[in-house]
Write a protein that binds this DNA or RNA. Structure first.
Length: 346
DNA sequence: TTCCTGCACT
DNA sequence: AGTGCAGGAA
């Protein structure tokens, strides 16, 4: 059977057009997708949690490493949280890894080591909200449930000319209602994946490829030539600047790390000992030398990290001298890698 | 450099 | 309404 031409697809309705476009142009070779089209729920779940915060290219390497280490949901549930966090190191938003681990244990205990096949039960698991639950229902179980992630918000805001800021509750309500109206009963997985792929590859924020869009003729923002104005811009977050003083204790290939407080930034992750001022750092370690400074941005803070070098091991009991080769087994934020790389270049 | 995106929890 | 990390694009 020959592929239908784009012009022939115009007779179809919104969701049918998205499905048809998916069969021609959507992504079907991602590591969490099986050629049969029936994807493993555990794989879909893991990929969706990672994709909440990271683009596909970056997720792929982490996903493969995860599945290699934890081939099944039981393997994940049986793991130590520190090992899960270690595998998550560099991805950011570490609570998602903690919730992933907790959810795996809940599934093991309450759902016979399976991901539930029910929207509300999925939402009941930590780390799974309405959109992620719907994505799992669609992609893993082929059940028609509307999703509303960042890509889909953009597609809907443009196509149906929804003006408000996408994260405002009134706007969200409109968007979810549209998603509900336009959900696809017969090919839920193809429709959901198609919507996401359409947003990611065609209906992009900058320079959308409207000429390749299967639903361009009914797109209201395009009709008004106002695509750049949709969706409305979010209010930007204020980032407070914070100065931190980090002690880099180096002894051969070992560096001194301690586990961070559970209420601090990067809770429970391994990092260099931090001080609030140069004075408190030097008070505790008089031999430390000012080394370099770098900027690291978090969601609501811009960290100016001033690194002080100490060319000897730290004796404090809270600090462990850890071989850099062993970092792969220890949870740590990306900032640690940036600091060590910069140290190597000095 | 500056701007921007991501989704769930509290 | 405030919070969490990192990276990609303009």
């Amino acid at each position: 059977m020959s592929k239908p031409l784009l012009t022939e697809l115009k007779a179809l309705n919104f969701s049918q057009q998205v499905v048809a476009w998916y069969h021609q142009h959507g992504r079907k070779q991602l590591p969490w997708q099986l050629s049969t089209g029936q994807h493993k729920p555990y794989h879909v779940w893991l990929s969706e949690i990672m994709l909440q915060q990271t683009q596909v290219v970056k997720v792929i390497e982490y996903f493969d490493r995860f599945i290699k280490t934890f081939p099944t949901l039981d393997d994940l549930a049986n793991a130590e949280e520190q090992q899960v966090l270690a595998l998550w190191s560099g991805l950011g938003y570490y609570n998602r890894a903690r919730n992933l681990h907790k959810s795996a244990q809940l599934c093991q205990q309450q759902h016979h080591s399976q991901l539930p096949q029910d929207l509300q039960q999925l939402i009941g698991l930590p780390g799974i909200g309405r959109s992620t639950a719907a994505a799992i229902m669609s992609l893993a179980y082929d059940q028609a449930e509307p999703i509303m992630d960042g890509n889909v918000k953009r597609v809907f805001a443009r196509h149906f000319l929804i003006a408000g800021e996408p994260n405002k509750s009134s706007t969200l309500k409109q968007l979810w209602q549209l998603a509900e109206v336009h959900k696809e009963q017969h090919e839920a997985a193809a429709y959901t994946q198609g919507l996401m792929d359409l947003g990611a590859t065609i209906c992009t924020k900058h320079q959308p490829k409207c000429d390749q869009c299967p639903i361009n003729e009914s797109c209201q923002a395009r009709k008004k030539d106002m695509i750049a104005q949709y969706p409305a811009k979010k209010q930007k977050v204020k980032q407070a600047e914070v100065d931190l003083y980090a002690l880099l204790s180096v002894d051969g290939s070992n560096v001194g790390l301690n586990q961070r407080d559970e209420h601090s930034i990067w809770p429970n992750l391994m990092f260099l000992p931090l001080f609030e001022s140069a004075e408190t750092l030097l008070n505790a370690h008089a031999d430390a030398q000012q080394h370099f400074s770098l900027t690291h941005k978090l969601t609501h803070r811009i960290l100016q990290i001033h690194v002080y070098l100490l060319k000897q091991p730290i004796k404090s009991t809270a600090v462990q001298m850890i071989d850099r080769e062993d970092l792969i087994n220890r949870p740590h934020p990306k900032a640690l890698i940036h600091i060590l790389n910069q140290h190597d270049n000095h």
